[in-house]
């Protein structure tokens, strides 16, 4: 009979920074919860967080409880970047060496929070803005956002006799961010935790504003099993639909090559938001072809085709190592 484990003690001894405690109320398999946890692991304790309204805020701060072990402020939906800018200004005035991270969903980044974000970037605040991109307004029940992919069905872009889901394209937010000429901007994915943490560290090292767009599947909103969150996120990368790239001052400095390029259908078929694209319908076939073309375009634009299947791309890939040491 082994003695009972002191979970509390063991939890306190975990060899990583734990900024986000369990007991939070994220759905099973929540990509955003994972992304936030990984972000904080890389960022460490010396940060202030400004969080936009959204799932993350709701599931972490049901008063009197909080899952955060770092200073945290949620104000409203649209102002995470501005609140973060205020924090940064204050810390600068006080001469404190503490980093500020703004956290927002795609609604709080692409749409309602965009103006504040653009202003913060333009003014050059030393703030890392992290967008947990789950491609719709999930907190309010899966309504389409500027980030919702083309042809995805949401409750405000449903599929029906006259419509094949969202009629518009996913906004290329990183290109817009790049136009601000900020020191560092990148995309990341929960499917590549080491890459994500590396990018958080890199972003926090730069002086000035930085931006990270983290693809974070929502099992409920995307319509896939909770165990598939990473699988789905990985396929988004491996199909070319969500390229993992890094920009410095707006210029492309790195892209994670895809070792094995999958057809977009491999990604789409796992999610019920794209179910209507698999109907026996010429419009559905056209939309599938459209999405494939978008992926092909990304692959070409960012040069995502891996040169060889060997370990050339191991810096970003989440190759596991016996005994826990990852490559990044």
């Amino acid at each position: 009979m082994t003695p009972p484990v002191d979970f509390q003690l063991l939890r306190a001894q975990q060899p990583r920074f734990q900024g986000l405690d369990p007991g939070h109320r994220a759905c099973q398999g929540c990509g955003q919860a994972l992304a936030a946890r990984l972000t904080l692991e890389a960022a460490g304790p010396d940060i202030l967080l400004a969080n936009a309204t959204g799932c993350l805020e709701v599931f972490t701060t049901a008063w009197p409880e909080s899952a955060w072990r770092v200073p945290y402020l949620h104000s409203v939906f649209a102002n995470a970047a501005a609140v973060a800018a205020g924090m940064e200004a204050a810390l600068k005035a006080q001469g404190k060496d503490v980093k500020v991270i703004a956290l927002a969903g795609d609604g709080g980044t692409f749409d309602i929070g965009f103006q504040a974000l653009s202003g913060m970037l333009e003014r050059g605040h030393d703030v890392l803005f992290v967008c947990y991109d789950n491609e719709a307004y999930m907190n309010t029940g899966v309504q389409r956002s500027g980030s919702t992919p083309h042809a995805a069905a949401t409750t405000t872009s449903p599929a029906g006799v006259a419509r094949m889901g969202k009629r518009h394209l996913k906004k290329d937010i990183l290109a817009i961010i790049a136009a601000h000429h900020i020191p560092y901007g990148a995309t990341a994915s929960v499917a590549y935790p080491a890459d994500l943490r590396k990018k958080v560290r890199r972003a926090l090292q730069v002086d000035g504003p930085s931006f990270l767009q983290v693809h974070s599947p929502c099992p409920l909103g995307w319509g896939h099993g909770s165990e598939l969150s990473i699988e789905v996120a990985r396929l988004a990368v491996q199909t070319g639909l969500f390229p993992l790239i890094e920009l410095e001052r707006g210029a492309l400095i790195g892209a994670m090559p895809i070792r094995q390029i999958h057809p977009v259908t491999a990604y789409l078929k796992l999610q019920s938001r794209f179910r209507h694209l698999f109907a026996d319908d010429p419009r559905a076939r056209e939309e599938l072809a459209h999405l494939q073309a978008l992926a092909d375009h990304n692959i070409e634009t960012y040069g995502l085709h891996a040169e060889s299947p060997d370990g050339l791309d191991s810096e970003g890939a989440d190759t596991v190592r016996r005994g826990g040491l990852r490559s990044a």
């Binding site: 990509g31 935790p193 005994g323």
Partner: peptide, 23 residues
């Protein structure tokens, strides 16, 4: 188990805890 830390890494709830023990 090869003690790769993957379960520890991907749990959104920090429900996987790591110990000093063999793989």
């Amino acid at each position: 188990c090869m003690a790769c830390d993957n379960c520890w890494t991907v749990c959104p709830d920090q429900a996987v805890l790591k110990m000093h023990a063999p793989a």
